[in-house]
């Protein structure tokens, strides 16, 4: 039996430029989940995440020829577009997005089926931890939040994250280090309320 290797992103893009719909669908199905999760984790809103995913692939449909492979992978290109749209959406809807919106509430209900239910007490603890960590990430300033989302939640390398964020690798490294320190500080303060620092109680910062 002959196994055909799946075409690379660049090959699919070439076919898309030639008008191949199946190539577009294949690329969309390969990349949409990552883009959607990135937007969801950055914005905390499923609605924004869907809009951003749609916008990203609309850009691909209309301006695919603008992609320059020498500047990074297609995946990084798509994440970069998603990032710009997320930041724009956050800036536009600043007053409407809060930590406790659909991502925390609907998201919990929507993805409940993803959690095994063999150990209810363990699941409860794990769910609490997940919610706590998620809230702490959501409360980070955007430039720290994005490196945590890309490097820790999407397991990108520093180089890939730097391509997405259009910055130096060293910048990604230092921001991640600082972001994790902030997260530890926030999580520790949650566990020990008496030691809460002023940073802990601030709402999401979009600086």
């Amino acid at each position: 039996m002959t196994v055909f290797p799946s075409p690379s992103d660049d090959e699919l893009l070439r076919l898309i430029l030639a008008g191949d719909e199946s190539a577009f669908v294949a690329l969309y199905r390969r990349r949409q989940s990552g883009i959607y999760r990135f937007a969801l984790q950055m914005s905390g809103s499923e609605m924004i995440a869907e809009d951003v995913t749609q916008e990203v692939f609309m850009v691909l449909i209309n301006e695919a020829k603008n992609y320059d492979p020498s500047k990074g992978s297609l995946s990084a290109y798509l994440y970069g577009i998603a990032r710009n749209h997320v930041l724009r959406a956050l800036s536009r809807d600043r007053s409407f997005v809060s930590i406790g919106d659909s991502y925390e509430e609907d998201g919990e209900a929507g993805h409940e089926q993803l959690v095994a239910n063999d150990d209810p007490l363990g699941d409860l603890t794990r769910n609490e931890t997940i919610v706590t960590v998620r809230q702490a990430v959501a409360a980070l300033p955007a430039h720290y939040r994005e490196v945590v989302v890309l490097c820790d939640l999407h397991e990108m390398s520093y180089v890939e994250a730097a391509q997405v964020l259009n910055c130096a690798v060293g910048t990604v490294r230092s921001r991640l280090h600082r972001a994790r320190a902030l997260l530890i500080e926030k999580l520790r303060a949650r566990n020990e309320p008496g030691t809460a620092s002023p940073i802990v109680n601030t709402a999401r910062c979009f600086a």
């Binding site: 949409q32 989940s33 959607y36 999760r37 969801l40 993805h111 993803l114 960590v133 998620r134």
Partner: peptide, 10 residues
């Protein structure tokens, strides 16, 4: 967190 959302999609 990443595992919990790994199956999320548009």
């Amino acid at each position: 967190v990443a595992t919990k959302l790994s199956a999320a999609e548009a």
